[in-house]
Design a protein around this nucleic acid. Structure first.
Lengths: 326, 326
DNA sequence: TTGTAGGCGTTATCAT
DNA sequence: ATGATAACGCCTACAA
């Protein structure tokens, strides 16, 4: 592969001049700059980023870690973060923690080794987990979309509480009196936030169902059980789920049992992820503005890198999307 | 950040010894190796990958480019490729071409500049597009899941033709006589393959509907039009779609019009992507074994890197998934 | 078994 | 305005 040395030789100047010319320094005469650039172009020169990072002692790269890219929410996050990061002139290293704490730690280490200028971490859904091993490396880090408690890093988080409260209030306004909140395991930050929002808004009218996982399968199973338990006389008139996937499961089970949505039982989702509008009954849900979350996170991290103080928790507003299911 | 120099100083040996010890060379005595490694560990040493790549003239990295990570198919591909690549001891650079030819080219260039040892390219859905600018860089490249025609690179492709033929045959066996094939724009490789499979299997009983895009919205719109055109007397008894997202759209429109699935009209999907089982009527579809595609692609690329010849097109088998919609 | 020294491709600091 | 040269952190002959 051709290097500035080759260009220097070909254009009869020193490597220093080539470097300056290529970096658009104004120390160089207009014409040599042009000539050098032209020659570099003709020779198909591609600068070696590793040499540059070595000498500059920084990578001009930002890292992003998400638990599982197959989750549409994280996929969207990666997409938008990537955009924002590139727009800011940085490169991007994407990694996945596979919902495994040991793996997450390993990957954070890789990021440090790669001298990323900053790191965005979307933590996995595990409780009682910290980043203590990071104490020795003063890496600018920010959480996105969830966080570990007792971890002293800033976080950009959608307004879970408020979003959940809003959709709950809507159910109330539509006359629902016995509202089920269907969620996942206890303890995980973003789920607890949503529960909190629900409980505040629902008050007397609220009930909570915990599933083992926030998955389609667990939601259908739970719904079947609820229906069996009801045994003909429904003790609920709305089911609000913690994400859209679960809501899709709830919808399908209800429909198969001949229960009409939203007339008999209303259903609510959360996320407004791609298929929220592709469900059997278009889903009323809470839209997390993933683009805004991504952009906020990136711009905050950049501020942090620039040495500015940034708030411990930044909340991103959330929107109620009214379709047919509620 | 601490370097081998610091370790050398701390352990009273030369940097060369440290390097050898850290790389588990057997030129070093067992005890100095252990001591050096321990000290390195205590000091929190993380090797600088850029320095290493610079001197070794390779990155031990593989690249992967997909059009849009928000597409669940590509998300799964990234997930599995990542696994396979790491299992093989390589690092991974993930990038997105955002369905933009110019951008794709730019990213390929970044990969070259990053000296990836090999590149997996999942090309965008655009026609009449080549990689001619790559001729000057002998980068081991393989296509995954689709390919550009007239591009002399090996490709790992699911057996589109056969998969589509199988689901079509199933429709036929179930007594369907007037089968619609709903697809996207003409010319794109993977779509043309599927069409080919359909036409072969359906013969006289086949009809083709082209949408502008392979999206939920376009599928619903097309279905509405078909229904309007039918005006009460349906001229088809099955709709086979080119992916699951479109099939979900078809299902929902049919159901809203009170048409029963599969009794009156059967519906088929393609991909067996996450929500194939979450659709209103669980979708009969063709499962692409993305894990196998990913693993095959990685192992082939590694062979290629090792200097072996590999076949121009490797086909990965596909499975019919029988649910309720057909 | 270990140390010395040169170089990977850049940038940056001096001179010129 | 340009050129020589010394880093950056690591690996690897080759020498000791």
């Amino acid at each position: 592969m051709i290097s500035i040395k080759d260009i220097a030789k070909a254009s009869g100047v020193s490597t220093a001049t080539v470097s300056l010319a290529l970096n658009h320094s104004d120390l160089i005469s207009e014409q040599t700059r042009e000539r050098v650039c032209r020659i570099a172009d003709e020779m198909g020169y591609l600068p070696n980023p590793y040499a540059r990072r070595l000498v500059k002692q920084r990578s001009d790269m930002l890292g992003l870690i998400v638990p599982d890219i197959r989750n549409v929410y994280y996929a969207a996050l990666v997409h938008h973060v990537n955009h924002a990061v590139r727009a800011a002139g940085y490169g991007m290293i994407i990694a996945m923690s596979e919902n495994n704490p040991a793996y997450e730690e390993k990957i954070v280490e890789e990021m440090i080794a790669s001298r990323v200028d900053g790191l965005l971490l979307s933590p996995l859904n595990s409780v009682g987990h910290t980043l203590s091993y990071l104490e020795h490396f003063p890496l600018p880090l920010a959480f996105v979309s969830s966080r570990y408690e007792d971890c002293p890093y800033p976080a950009v988080i959608p307004d879970y509480q408020n979003g959940m409260a809003e959709i709950t209030r809507m159910a109330l306004e539509k006359g629902r009196k016995r509202i089920l909140f269907m969620t996942g395991p206890k303890g995980e930050y973003s789920l607890e936030e949503r529960k909190q929002g629900f409980l505040c808004a629902a008050g007397e009218n609220g009930m909570v169902v915990h599933c083992r996982e926030v998955s389609y399968a667990d939601a259908t199973e739970a719904t079947e059980q609820l229906l069996a338990k009801a045994n003909g006389s429904l003790f609920f008139d709305a089911i609000l789920c913690v994400n859209d996937t679960m809501a899709a499961g709830v919808e399908n089970v209800l429909l198969r049992h001949g229960i009409s949505i939203p007339e008999t039982v209303a259903v609510g989702g959360y996320d407004d992820v791609l298929f929220a509008e592709t469900t059997a009954v278009p889903l009323t849900t809470v839209k997390q503005d993933i683009k805004m979350i991504a952009e906020t996170a990136v711009s905050l991290l950049l501020k942090r890198i620039a040495g500015n103080k940034i708030p411990q928790i930044t909340t991103v507003p959330v929107t109620l999307i009214h379709r047919d299911s509620l």
